[in-house]
């Protein structure tokens, strides 16, 4: 198509008859080597978590006290065994599963609710005050306190942790989204969209939300790391994962008792948490850039 129209006076510079095809979002994302590595890591971690039952060499609850605190490299135990003599590899795979589900679920749930609140507050100035004061109330409770309260109501366990961490994420996300949305609301294209008579939902989804994506992405990936650490803290307090369930944070806190005799029990789960958080952060950053048309070369 795109034939050069010679009658167009504005086209002062000659233009090629056809434009090269734009690279897709995925291609742009993977062009950065760091982003590609992070992407590969995230895929591998998710794969490991999903296929843990097939990948794990042993049952996660299979203890063998003869091998208790076996050091990495022991016959048949590449990463050693924990204080109960359970294979670390198995425990890590299952732990990754629980930890990542917990982190993703909390960030997703809390983030979506928080974003809805934030967009509503920015868009409907009438309810802005009420909504944001409510968020301030939520913000004044530490996440641990929510965990205690929710565990007291529903009993300790992973669902309680997810709920508590979601509630703790809502006000943070709401404030960030509202701040970003207020800036976008002042732009002329919002007014232009309004002047066409489109509905609020369309305006928010098509014009407001896409232009608030950058801070949302950055916050969600940062929060993912925080949530995993908070979840570990709750597990440590006995409110989250209950033994013998494997969860990275719980494993780390359990290993703390043997830090001097068998450091690998605590260190390896911590390293894995670090890798998970880092990979998600880097990928989140890269995703934000890939989604922004202005940053395309």
């Amino acid at each position: 198509m795109a034939s050069v129209n010679s009658t167009a006076a504005a086209a002062a510079t000659p233009v090629p008859a056809s434009m090269p095809k734009r690279p897709g979002m995925m291609k742009r994302l993977l062009k950065e080597p760091v982003a590609a590595i992070a992407f590969a890591l995230v895929v591998a971690l998710i794969g490991a978590a999903v296929f843990a039952p097939w990948l794990a060499p042993t049952d996660p609850f299979d203890n063998d006290l003869a091998n208790a605190m076996a050091v990495p490299g022991t016959e048949g135990l590449l990463l050693g065994a924990d204080s109960q003599g359970r294979n670390m590899i198995t425990r890590l795979l299952y732990g990754l599963r629980v930890t990542m589900t917990m982190g993703l679920a909390s960030v997703l749930l809390g983030g979506v609710v928080g974003a809805l609140v934030g967009f509503s507050a920015a868009f409907y100035s009438r309810i802005d005050g009420v909504l944001m004061r409510l968020m301030d109330v939520l913000l004044s409770f530490p996440a641990i306190l929510f965990g205690l309260a929710i565990a007291a109501i529903f009993g300790p366990g992973i669902p309680a942790v997810v709920l508590a961490l979601s509630v703790a994420t809502v006000p943070l996300m709401a404030r960030i989204v509202r701040g970003a949305a207020l800036v976008v609301m002042r732009m002329d294209y919002i007014e232009a969209a309004r002047s066409t008579g489109m509905g609020d939902a369309r305006l928010i989804l098509r014009h407001l939300a896409p232009n608030c994506l950058s801070p949302i992405f950055v916050f969600a990936t940062l929060r993912f790391g925080q949530v995993i650490l908070l979840g570990s803290a709750l597990s440590f307090l006995g409110l989250g994962a209950q033994p013998p369930l494997a969860e990275l944070g719980a494993m780390a806190s359990e290993g703390r008792n043997f830090l001097f005799f068998a450091p690998h029990i605590a260190v390896i789960p911590c390293v894995l948490i670090f890798v998970v958080v880092l990979a998600f952060n880097v990928l989140g950053d890269a995703l934000r850039d890939a989604l922004d048309p202005r940053l395309r070369s």
């Binding site: 732009m187 002329d188 294209y189 007014e191 232009a192 969209a193 002047s195 066409t196 008579g197 098509r206 014009h207 896409p210 232009n211 922004d292 048309p293 202005r294």
Partner: peptide, 20 residues
């Protein structure tokens, strides 16, 4: 009625959604 009246803005850098 909105269909019958439209607006052109002052700032061409703010009047177009950068994501569309």
């Amino acid at each position: 009625l909105r269909r019958r009246m439209q607006i052109v803005f002052q700032d061409p850098y703010a009047s177009l959604n950068p994501r569309l």
